[in-house]
Simulated scan of single mutants.
Amino acid sequence: MMKFKSVVTKALGLASIALFAVLVCVTVWQVFSRQVLHSPSTWSEELSKLLFVWLSFAGSAFLFGERGHIAVDFVARKFSSSTQRILQIIVQLLIVVFALLGMVWGGYLAASIAWNQQLTALPLTIGWVYVVIPIAGLFIAMFAVIDLISVASGKEEPYPDIDESEEPRDLDELEGHDPDVALTADVAGSADSAEGRN
């Protein structure tokens, strides 16, 4: 089950990369045609809006599959492990309900209402903008069910620890040197150069 989730998440990641690449190309063409050719492209603005919506929802589903979404777990981590597990199960159930009702059902209604409304510059209908919402909702619901089963069975931690060992804590760590060592080396270097001049 986790292998399947990993494959789907990777596919969503690749789809997000492809959507982003096409979005960048379309936007560059839009700016080039407007500023350099002085003949604004009529289709690129609508396509960039459609791509941006699709990228947002595909990226959200990808992030959810990675369990990288925002989670305020400060209070939950204060409880015991069993209570954390129960809280995470409740959270995953709420996510499944929201994904199925709000995104799948609501997205289907939005897409069906707008399905016959034609875009002005593209041979597509406005429904194509909204059709990504139920698709992303299905992925999010599927990931939530997999996470719920994994947490309930004890295969996964309710709130996994974040590895911050490689992240710099201050500017000195970011630059990769200790100021005291650097200062000592600078003083020693200055002393050596002064002796060389003498």
Rank of each mutant, 00 (worst) to 15 (best):
residue 43 W to L: 10
residue 44 S to K: 09
residue 44 S to I: 05
residue 45 E to F: 09
residue 45 E to N: 11
residue 45 E to C: 05
residue 47 L to C: 03
residue 47 L to N: 01
residue 48 S to E: 02
residue 48 S to Q: 04
residue 49 K to L: 03
residue 50 L to T: 14
residue 50 L to R: 07
residue 50 L to E: 01
residue 50 L to G: 02
residue 51 L to W: 05
residue 52 F to P: 06
residue 53 V to T: 01
residue 54 W to N: 08
residue 56 S to Y: 13
residue 57 F to D: 00
residue 60 S to L: 11
residue 60 S to M: 15
residue 60 S to K: 10
residue 60 S to N: 10
residue 61 A to N: 14
residue 62 F to M: 08
residue 63 L to A: 11
residue 63 L to C: 13
residue 64 F to A: 07
residue 64 F to Q: 06
residue 65 G to I: 09
residue 67 R to Y: 10
residue 67 R to T: 11
residue 69 H to P: 09
residue 69 H to D: 06
residue 69 H to Q: 09
residue 70 I to T: 08
residue 73 D to N: 14
residue 75 V to F: 12
residue 76 A to R: 12
residue 76 A to I: 15
residue 76 A to Q: 12
residue 78 K to S: 10
residue 78 K to M: 13
residue 79 F to Y: 12
residue 81 S to T: 07
residue 81 S to W: 13
residue 81 S to M: 06
residue 81 S to G: 07
residue 83 T to D: 07
residue 84 Q to E: 11
residue 84 Q to K: 14
residue 86 I to M: 12
residue 87 L to I: 15
residue 88 Q to K: 12
residue 88 Q to P: 06
residue 89 I to C: 11
residue 90 I to F: 14
residue 91 V to C: 10
residue 92 Q to T: 09
residue 93 L to K: 07
residue 94 L to T: 01
residue 94 L to Q: 03
residue 94 L to Y: 12
residue 94 L to N: 11
residue 98 F to I: 02
residue 98 F to R: 03
residue 98 F to Q: 05
residue 99 A to E: 05
residue 101 L to M: 06
residue 101 L to W: 04
residue 102 G to F: 07
residue 103 M to D: 02
residue 103 M to T: 01
residue 103 M to C: 01
residue 104 V to Y: 05
residue 104 V to A: 05
residue 107 G to Q: 01
residue 109 L to D: 04
residue 109 L to I: 10
residue 111 A to I: 02
residue 111 A to K: 05
residue 112 S to T: 09
residue 112 S to C: 00
residue 113 I to T: 13
residue 113 I to A: 04
residue 114 A to S: 15
residue 115 W to C: 06
residue 117 Q to A: 15
residue 119 L to K: 08
residue 120 T to C: 08
residue 120 T to N: 14
residue 122 L to T: 06
residue 122 L to R: 08
residue 122 L to I: 09
residue 123 P to E: 02
residue 125 T to Y: 13
residue 125 T to S: 09
residue 125 T to P: 06
residue 125 T to K: 15
residue 126 I to L: 13
residue 127 G to P: 04
residue 128 W to P: 05
residue 130 Y to L: 05
residue 131 V to W: 11
residue 132 V to N: 10
residue 132 V to A: 00
residue 132 V to K: 04
residue 134 P to K: 08
residue 135 I to R: 08
residue 135 I to V: 15
residue 135 I to M: 11
residue 137 G to Y: 07
residue 138 L to A: 06
residue 139 F to E: 00
residue 140 I to Q: 04
residue 140 I to E: 00
residue 140 I to N: 00
residue 140 I to T: 00
residue 141 A to F: 00
residue 141 A to H: 04
residue 142 M to D: 01
residue 142 M to E: 08
residue 145 V to F: 02
residue 145 V to M: 09
residue 146 I to H: 00
residue 146 I to L: 13
